[in-house]
């Protein structure tokens, strides 16, 4: 077993240090070491998108990122999306639009949507579908998810206009 490393990241705005083996993924460390179980594991090979987090603003499947690679990065997970007890527009839109059934894919979709809307505040349906194609949902048939993302975009723009 290789020697453990100390890794420093910023997690949802707070500085965090942890000890990990070089073979451990960011997903494993988030869930098992840091107890941030909001990020889900569906396939452990980057196919399903359930473990999507933002690393320096970029969406990554955290099962394909080694924890040591996150050194110095700003990591944002689903636990860091709401502002205190105020849900973010995307979370509110998923709730109001019934855009989840079992909910296991929801954290990944929310993070991917956060990245999309930061990049493109007014996406078309086609752009939404293209950007979210790496996140699998087996329950909803995606209809209500796509609508919720479009609705979240509207909510965000309205909030910015205020």
């Amino acid at each position: 077993m290789a020697k453990k490393r100390v890794v420093s990241i910023k997690l949802n705005g707070d500085p965090v240090e942890f000890l990990c083996e070089p073979r451990q993924t960011l997903l494993e460390v988030l869930r098992d070491t840091l107890d941030m179980t909001g990020t889900k594991e569906g396939c452990s090979n980057g196919n399903c998108g359930a473990c999507t987090v933002l690393m320096d603003g970029r969406p990554v499947t955290s099962c394909l990122v080694l924890a040591v690679e996150a050194e110095g990065a700003e990591v944002r997970t689903v636990e860091g999306v709401a502002c205190g007890s105020h849900l973010a527009p995307v979370q509110q839109a998923f709730l109001e639009g019934a855009a989840l059934q079992c909910g296991i894919c929801t954290p990944g979709f929310i993070m991917q949507t956060e990245a999309l809307l930061a990049e493109n505040p007014s996406p078309t349906e086609e752009q939404v579908r293209f950007y979210l194609a790496g996140n699998l949902c087996r329950c909803t048939g995606y209809d209500k998810i796509v609508r919720a993302v479009m609705c979240a975009a509207d909510k965000r723009r309205a909030a910015m206009d205020d």
Partner: peptide, 21 residues
Amino acid sequence: PIRHDGVDKVTGRAKYGADIR
């Protein structure tokens, strides 16, 4: 109505099988 378990599921607080400690 908004589902009762909804907030837990959009904030990552809902505990699924693998989340048990």
